[in-house]
Design a protein around this nucleic acid. Sequence first.
DNA 1: CTGAAAGCGCTAACAT
DNA 2: ATGTTAGCGCTTTCAG
Lengths: 355, 355
Amino acid sequence: MAEVTLREVALLSGCSVSTVSRVLAGTRPVGAETSRRVRQAAESLGYVPNQVARALRSRSTGTVGLVLPQITNPFYPSLVRELTRALHADDRAVLLADCDDDPVEEASRIADLLGRQVDALLVIPADEQRSREAVAAAARRVPLVLLDRGCGPGVADSVAVDNMAGMSLLLEHLTSGGRRRFCFVGAAGTDSAAAERAATYTSVAALLAPGASARVELGDFSVAWGRAAVDRIWPSRPDAIVCANDLIAVGVLQRLRELGADVPGDVAVTGFDDIPVAELTAPGITTVRQPVGELAAEAARLLDHRLAGAGPGACRTVRLAPALMVRASSGPATHLDAADTAAPLVAQRTAEEHP
Amino acid sequence: MAEVTLREVALLSGCSVSTVSRVLAGTRPVGAETSRRVRQAAESLGYVPNQVARALRSRSTGTVGLVLPQITNPFYPSLVRELTRALHADDRAVLLADCDDDPVEEASRIADLLGRQVDALLVIPADEQRSREAVAAAARRVPLVLLDRGCGPGVADSVAVDNMAGMSLLLEHLTSGGRRRFCFVGAAGTDSAAAERAATYTSVAALLAPGASARVELGDFSVAWGRAAVDRIWPSRPDAIVCANDLIAVGVLQRLRELGADVPGDVAVTGFDDIPVAELTAPGITTVRQPVGELAAEAARLLDHRLAGAGPGACRTVRLAPALMVRASSGPATHLDAADTAAPLVAQRTAEEHP
DNA sequence: CTGAAAGCGCTAACAT
DNA sequence: ATGTTAGCGCTTTCAG
């Protein structure tokens, strides 16, 4: 119950506090016999090092701040899980800050975390422009890695999915299935993922299907927008609706069903991210899965690299390729020429849950 | 860029460090003029208090640990969001620990958090029995509030939804809709929510519909189990399937659709928790919504109470009532006597998204 | 390899 | 209302 300190362990084991510290922190070599006595004393007293005191002296808290826009965004929980797992494995603790999608709140959370002497920061910026100043200022004080979204060039190290590769996978899959009349339902948001996915769609679609139409509608990353978008685009009868994320795809699917459209018979629908709900809809949503575990591991690696002494060197930008997840929403169309339905260009995994 | 300390602020403002400390921490009254000078000096130097040093001296880190079984459980993100919001409002930071549903990992995360001198702990225990020892030990060292799930009696303060009230709302709703042949699809898990929901179902069902059948099937809290359960119970043709949470209900709905059953015409389906996906299915799932914001606020209030000096007094157990969310999955049955379809006993909110 | 001493930056008694 | 003096518990020079 009482707070056991190093001093008491030293007294019991009959050596000095410095020796005890060295044994327990493993900072320097200590005699085998002394070491044994110290460990035993610590054990018998139930000694637990006070990390706050240790941090004050050693100037390292073993803590990283994780700042994200909204934990309720269904893509983030799995990312948070992998990040905490990776960081805990390195004996680091995670201070979590949710900004409610507000760059002002984000700036104040970051300032708070810096005051708490985090060793490093992991930031998923809320807004590509408006998050920039606070992020850049923080990056000057501690190692900082941007995750999932960017924040302008040269601000900090960053790790994200390769949005272009993901879009390419989806569009190749759709074209190889004979689809030609594309439509993109994206987000006009100011975060970098939204911008990248929209831009990539346009250029890749032009490349893969030169003569094909490639209409673009921009709203936000929500189910409601997916529903609304269908009402605007369905009259033009696209045969493939490419959505900027899975939530939009869920809305698109809902509305198409209400309108009596057959998915995938009349129109294919694809998402992005592979959030859990993507395989729960009927039909399941064809999407690209972000390599969440690897994103987390890579972020941890970049932090380690900076913490290990690499000073303020050049920023690294890491892009990881996602994997195509083929589900029923992009299955065979019903009214196509046989010649169009060539073999797919990429390896596919069929969803088991919708046989 | 350089680390500005209290001493430098004191030098610039021409007074002692203690005075500066008192001004900035607001611990004691300070002369208006001095106070102004200090603030200005701090401002001009860009002084940021070092919370680690402050914590070491004042024996309070302003940090609470949040320990949960799995952030990927779709019910937790919104809870985490509300908790961080409530705690940040009190200038507390949140150290997050995910245990991957493993009580051993949980115990080690708790020990780590205690070493980091958290002022208090918020714990959603992974297992009612196997989490108990570590939780009880932690509760002896810092204020600890259990959330969502219990951990045996008398261990710590706890806040959770009133599972009995929720079940009652659902069963009243179903009986008032004329349903009589109930079936419960629950979880045999060792956490307290699973046990409570199953037990409550049995007793409330007997109470509300004395002659009615009330079959119980136990598996786990997953979509897959929901699907499997349907294959076991559908042959007996229940007219209402009550699920222990929304994930199970999603699975039940999927499988019923595959079997060609009409929901709600042939059979009603209900969930529990109101996770986001509950309103995205077709039909939307009738469920009870946990009062997440209030759960979080109440947990914060209990912590404050203990931190404000209330010693190890008697444990408080707070139960909050959930709200019935009526959606299409419990709409009118097609083959009932008119007499059975009386007016509902409780106020209902019809889901707008499935008109 | 080990001990003694000096703080990390701040707050809390005790003085005044 | 302010200054002075001690540390919080630990790590880290610096001696030996």
